[in-house]
Design a protein around this nucleic acid. Structure first.
Lengths: 226, 226
DNA sequence: TTCATGGTTCGACCGTAGCCGAAACATCGA
DNA sequence: TCGATGTTTCGGCTACGGTCGAACCATGAA
C-alpha cells in the first residue's frame, strides 16, 4: 500500500510530451498565447487548448486575458524548479529518450513548422547549408555570398527575400531532433521551392511527404553530414 | 517547436500511479524486493516487475542481488529530490487528486493488503477502534483492555495472538485512502474473522466483497466516525 | 536430483487519454 | 452589423501502455 499523494497525477501532467513542451516553452518566464503554445507543442490549437486547460486547472499556469488573446505563464518559481530538476534527472539518467516529439513517424522526418520545413529533413537541410559555408550559424544566421549563389541555382532569390521586412534567416530548435532547422523568410521560401520543384508536397495535417525522386534530389542538394 | 529533453519521458515514468507508489515506498532509503514493491504498488508481481524494469533502465533504481532476492533502492539522492519537489508541487496545487490508488471501485472500498483488510473499510475499522479507545494509535498500536474485551465479543482472541511472534498490531498507510488501516497479527485475524462470520468473502484478485447483511453488521460493529 | 520460492517473459485484453476537424463561441475592428 | 481572428467545445477515432494469468527461468533448500 502506501501512497505518494497526487505525485503521480502531478508527474503525469508533466509527462505528456505536448504538455512538457508547453511548460518548457514558458520556462524563460515569458507569457505566450494559446496559438503560440500550440506551435511550441507541435500540436493543433484545439489539442493545445485542452492541455492548457489541464495545466491551468492543476495550478501550473497563470492566465492573463488581454483583448482577445489569452496569455499564459508559469504560475510560480516552484513549477519551473520542478521542471529544472526533472531536466537534470533526465540528463543524468542518460541519453535514453523514450518518446519525444510527435508519435507519427511521418511527422518526425518532415513536417511543417509554421511555414517552413522541420523534422529530420529540416535539420539536415540547415546542417548541410552550414557545413558547406552557405549559411553562418548564429542566433540570426546569415547567408554567405557562396550561399546566395548556391540558392539561386535552386531557384531561390535570396536578394529579393532580404528586401522584405521579414527576417531572412532564423533558426528554430527542432522539436523532435533537438537541433536547429531553418526558419524565417528563407526557410519559408525553401519549402515553397521544394514543393514547386515537385520534390515534396504537403499532406493532410502538418506532414510533408517527399516523392521518391524528390528524396534523392534533396539528398543530393543537401547531403547529410557524417 | 522547442523541446524539453527527455523531461517528458522522465516525468511520464514517475507519472504512473504504480511506479509512483514504488518510488515513494523507497523514499526512506530502504531496499525492498520485487514482491514487496508489488504490494506497495498494489499490483500483481508481473506488473510490478515490468515497472521496476523500466525504472531501472531509466536509472532511477539500484539493484543488489542477494540469494534469490533482488533488492531495489533509489539510485541516488537526486531521484528522491525530484520526488519530494513533486510532492511539494502536488501539495501546493491543491487537493485535486486525479487518480490515486486502484481504478477498480471494488478495490477502493475493500481489498486485501498482504493478509489484512485495506481500502475504505479497512480505514473505517481502524479509525473506529481508535476513536472508541479500543486501540491506542501509534507506530506500533496497542490494544487496550476494553479493546480486548470488545474483540473477544467478536470472537477474536487478542491474548492468543499476542503470544505469537508476529507483532500484534501494526498500522499501514492505506494506498487509496491515505489514512491508516490495521495490519499485523490482529489485522490478519480480523479479516479471517470477518470471513468466518460471513460478513465478507474474498473474491478473485484482491477484492473483498461484503455481503449486504455483512455490510450492515460491519457498520454496526465499527461505526464510521463523523 | 527434485521441490519450492522469487522473478521474468509472453500474450491477450482493455481503458484511458491524446489527437484532430468541424463547429460554436467570444472579442475586436471596420 | 458584419466579418476576421483567437479560443473553446464536441465527437469520434486511434493507439499506447497498463494489467493480469500462465508459463517459463533461476536460485537455493531438502
Amino acid at each position: 500500500m502506501k501512497d505518494g499523494p497526487s505525485i503521480a497525477a502531478t508527474a503525469a501532467l508533466i509527462g505528456d510530451p505536448a504538455r512538457a513542451n508547453i511548460l518548457v516553452a514558458l520556462m524563460d518566464g515569458r507569457a505566450l498565447t494559446v496559438t503560440e503554445l500550440a506551435h511550441a507543442a507541435g500540436t493543433s490549437i484545439p489539442t493545445a487548448s485542452g492541455h492548457i486547460a489541464k495545466l491551468s486547472e492543476a495550478g501550473f499556469l497563470a492566465t492573463r486575458r488581454q483583448g482577445r488573446h489569452r496569455y499564459l505563464s508559469l504560475s510560480g518559481p516552484d513549477v519551473a524548479d520542478v521542471i529544472e530538476r526533472l531536466m537534470g534527472l533526465a540528463g543524468r539518467t542518460g541519453a535514453r529518450r523514450m518518446r519525444t516529439g510527435p508519435r507519427d513517424p511521418a511527422l518526425r522526418t518532415a513536417r511543417l513548422c509554421y511555414d517552413h520545413l522541420a523534422g529530420a529533413s529540416g535539420v539536415q537541410l540547415y546542417r548541410s547549408l552550414v557545413v558547406r559555408g552557405f549559411v553562418a550559424d548564429a542566433a540570426h544566421p546569415s547567408v554567405t555570398e557562396d550561399g546566395a549563389r548556391f540558392l539561386a541555382g535552386l531557384g531561390v532569390d535570396v536578394g529579393g527575400l532580404a528586401r522584405g521586412r521579414r527576417p531572412l534567416c532564423l533558426r528554430c530548435l527542432d522539436w523532435s531532433e533537438r537541433r536547429h532547422h531553418l526558419a524565417g523568410a528563407l526557410g519559408a521560401a525553401m519549402l515553397v521551392r521544394l514543393v514547386d520543384l515537385g520534390w515534396a508536397r504537403r499532406e493532410d495535417g502538418r506532414v510533408i511527404r517527399f516523392t521518391p525522386a524528390g528524396e534523392t534530389a534533396f539528398a543530393r542538394a543537401f547531403p547529410p553530414s557524417p
